[in-house]
Design a protein around this nucleic acid. Structure first.
Lengths: 191, 191
DNA sequence: CTAGAATTTCTAGCAACGCTAGCCTAACGC
DNA sequence: GCGTTAGGCTAGCGTTGCTAGAAATTCTAG
C-alpha cells in the first residue's frame, strides 16, 4: 500500500516538474521552443511520459495557464483597496499590468493560446472564476449605480487591450503612463 | 518588351490569387487549414511557387493582414461623424466591432498572428498608419483638452480587448451592448 | 521552322513537429 | 526466488514549412 502512495507522490512531482519546466522554458525562450522533444529532454524523460500526464501539448499549455490565473487572482487580491475609487482601480490596474509584464509567456498562455478554457459557464475551472472574482470584488467598490460585472468586464478588456497591443508593438512605450492615467480617469470615477 | 509586361501582369494576378485564396480559406476553415500544401493545391500550382512570391508562410499572413488594415481604415473613414461626441465614438466603435466580427480570421491575422508588423515607427507600412489615422481623426473631434493620440490608443485598446476576450470565450455574449454602452459613456465624453 | 538559351515549374526530399504502437526492463506481490 | 504487471523507451507514422535539382515550357535568334 505504501509503495503505491510513494508512486503517486512521485507522479505528482513529475507532473509539477513538467509544468514548471514548460513554463520556465516558455518564459526564457518563448513558446515556440517548448516542443515535446525539448520538454522531454529537459525533464530527462522520453516523450511518451508527457502523454501519460497530459492529453497533449495543448493540455500542458492549458495547465500552465490555469496556474497563471491562480497567481493573477492572488496578485489582484493583494492590491489593497484605497479610500478613493480611482486609487482603488489604479492598484488593481497596476497589479494586472505588472503581472502581464513580468510573465509575458504565461500571460500569452492564458489569453492567446489556451483558447478552449471555458469561461462564464458552468464548467469554468475554479482558477478562472477566482481571477475574475478578484477583479470584480475590487471594481465593485466603485461601480456606483452601474452593473459591477459589466464594469469589471470593461476594465478587464481595456487592460487586456493595452497589453495585447503593446506586446504586438502597436502602442508606443512612451505613452504608457499617459494611457493608464486616462483610463483611470474615465473608468475610475463613480457614475 | 511586351511579353515581359504580360509576365509581370500574370505574376501580379497570381500574387493576388494567393492572398485571396489564403484569406478565403482562413475565413472558412481557420488559419490552421492554411498550409502551404493546401494553399498550393487551391491555386492549382505546386508549393514552391508560393516561395517565389513570398518569403514564407508568415509573409503571406502579413500580406493578408495589411489588406485588412486598408479595409479597416476604409470602414472607419466611412463611419460618418455625428454632432455629439458620444454618437461619433459610437459610430467608430460599431464600425470597428463589425469589421472584427465579420472578418474574424482576418482580424486574427492583423492582431494575433502577424506580430512582426512594426507600428509607430519610421518603417511602419502605410496601411497600418492609415488605420490608426482613420481612428484618430474621428476621435480627435471630441478629445477635448487631452492628447488625441493617447485617447485614440485607449479607445483602440478597449475595443481590441473586448474583441479578444469575447473571441476567447471570456466575456458572456449577453452583455455585449451593455459593455459597449458603458465604454461609450466613459470614453465618449469631452473632458 | 528549328535549335539553343533562359526562365519557370514541378518532383522529391529534408528536418522538425505532435503523437503512438509495441517491445523491454525493472519493480512488485506471492 | 519467480511470474506478473506496471512503466518507460525506442522507433516510427503522418504532417508541417521549406528547398535543391531535375524537368518542362517559353522565348530568342538564325
Amino acid at each position: 500500500m505504501s509503495t503505491q502512495q510513494r508512486r503517486e507522490r512521485e507522479r505528482a512531482q513529475r507532473h509539477d516538474l513538467i509544468l514548471k519546466t514548460a513554463r520556465t522554458l516558455a518564459e526564457s525562450e518563448g513558446w515556440d521552443a517548448v516542443t515535446t522533444r525539448r520538454l522531454a529532454d529537459e525533464i530527462e524523460y522520453s516523450q511518451p511520459v508527457l502523454y501519460s500526464h497530459f492529453a497533449g501539448k495543448d493540455a500542458i499549455v492549458a495547465a500552465v495557464a490555469l496556474e497563471g490565473f491562480t497567481e493573477l487572482a492572488a496578485r489582484l487580491r493583494a492590491a489593497t483597496p484605497a479610500d478613493e475609487p480611482r486609487a482603488t482601480l489604479e492598484g488593481l490596474a497596476r497589479a494586472y499590468l505588472a503581472f502581464a509584464e513580468e510573465n509575458p509567456a504565461l500571460y500569452d498562455a492564458m489569453f492567446t493560446m489556451a483558447v478552449d478554457l471555458p469561461f462564464g459557464q458552468d464548467d469554468t475551472p475554479e482558477p478562472l472564476r477566482a481571477g475574475f472574482q478578484a477583479l470584480l470584488s475590487g471594481v465593485a467598490r466603485f461601480a456606483g449605480r452601474g452593473d459591477p460585472e459589466i464594469l469589471t468586464e470593461v476594465v478587464w478588456s481595456a487592460l487586456h487591450g493595452l497589453i495585447a497591443l503593446s506586446r504586438a508593438g502597436r502602442l508606443p512605450p512612451a505613452g504608457r503612463e499617459a494611457r493608464l492615467a486616462l483610463l483611470l480617469d474615465r473608468l475610475g470615477a463613480v457614475h
